[in-house]
């Protein structure tokens, strides 16, 4: 009797506690982002107005039109899209080929190479920065798209290979054999069978790769020099370095700079989270 009475109140209490926890957590995670978003619509003088208000009378899209109207800023965005897009494309091609090799073949040094690829992920970018500077100058790629596309692959590729190997490992080899018996080459197996089936995995690897490339800062800072080669993160830093802080422009640019990643993430989050879970931890 007492047990039956206690049950509902206890679950009620748990429920209340969980919801309080969830809301506190959402405030912790979401409020700073909301504040940034709201402030990007304020005028520069109202951003630190006292008392602070989420939305005030200075609400306008001026900061956005200024940023988007400036050819310099538009160039930052163009560069970021181009570089991240190409890095994603190349990483997916190279990573899929390597993942196929690791998943379907046994060969000498396979274990060793696998370990090297996992190990490359722990090499600090700052260690690579100095030799990259020399390498890129030597390759005559300094201050070019090629410099960034090439160097970004050092951190996008290992992840892509590990993930793709994992996906292909989940697909039965009988699929390959069926194609092989029909006279298909190994490349046909990959291109016609494995790639279409693992498209969700490829999408999630692609999204993550794009995010990594879009967010990269250190190599973009050291391997490019002129403003027409700079990317969005560096563009934001350049705005910060100016004498008078154009806060609202900086915030508008930050919001615009987060949009592609946010949209990609929201669209593909189901694949993405499943992919993360399947590959990143187990390797």
């Amino acid at each position: 009797m007492s047990k039956m009475m206690a049950r509902p109140t206890r679950t009620g209490l748990t429920k209340a506690l969980v919801f309080i926890g969830l809301i506190l957590g959402a405030l912790f995670a979401g409020l700073p982002v909301l504040w940034m978003f709201a402030s990007s619509f304020k005028s520069n003088t109202e951003i630190f107005a006292y008392p602070p208000r989420l939305v005030d009378s200075s609400f306008s899209f001026t900061a956005y039109t200024t940023v988007l109207g400036d050819p310099q800023q538009r160039r930052f965005f163009f560069n970021s899209y181009l570089i991240s897009g190409l890095v994603t494309l190349f990483t997916l091609i190279v990573g899929t080929l390597a993942g196929y090799s690791f998943s379907r073949y046994d060969f000498k040094f396979k274990r060793f190479l696998n370990l090297v690829i996992i190990g490359v992920q722990s090499v600090p970018p700052i260690t690579l920065m100095i030799p990259y500077f020399g390498l890129i100058v030597w390759l005559q790629l300094y201050n070019s798209y090629g410099a960034l596309i090439l160097t970004y692959m050092v951190f996008t590729l290992p992840y892509a290979i590990i993930m793709m190997t994992g996906y292909f490992n989940t697909l039965p080899r009988e699929l390959d054999e069926a194609v092989m018996i029909d006279g298909g080459s190994s490349f046909v197996v990959l291109w016609k069978i494995l790639v279409p089936i693992s498209l969700p995995g490829i999408v999630s690897v692609g999204v993550y790769t794009f995010m990594l490339a879009w967010n990269e800062f250190l190599f973009a800072l050291t391997l490019t020099k002129t403003n027409d080669m700079r990317t969005v993160p560096i563009g934001i830093q350049l705005l910060m370095g100016q004498h008078s802080f154009e806060w609202n422009q900086m915030l508008a640019m930050s919001v615009l700079g987060s949009l592609p990643v946010l949209i990609l993430f929201l669209v593909s989050q189901r694949y993405f989270i499943a992919g993360m879970a399947a590959g990143s931890i187990k390797g």
């Binding site: 080929l97 390597a98 090799s101 073949y105 490359v120 690579l128 030799p131 390498l135 590729l157 190994s186």
Partner: peptide, 25 residues
């Protein structure tokens, strides 16, 4: 030979972007 053919772009990139730079540093 086939697995190495599939791995060749990776091996080339890793050599240029990882082994040589670390040796340089």
């Amino acid at each position: 030979a086939v697995p190495f053919a599939y791995l060749s772009p990776t091996l080339l990139l890793l050599a240029v972007l990882s082994f040589i730079p670390i040796a340089t540093v």
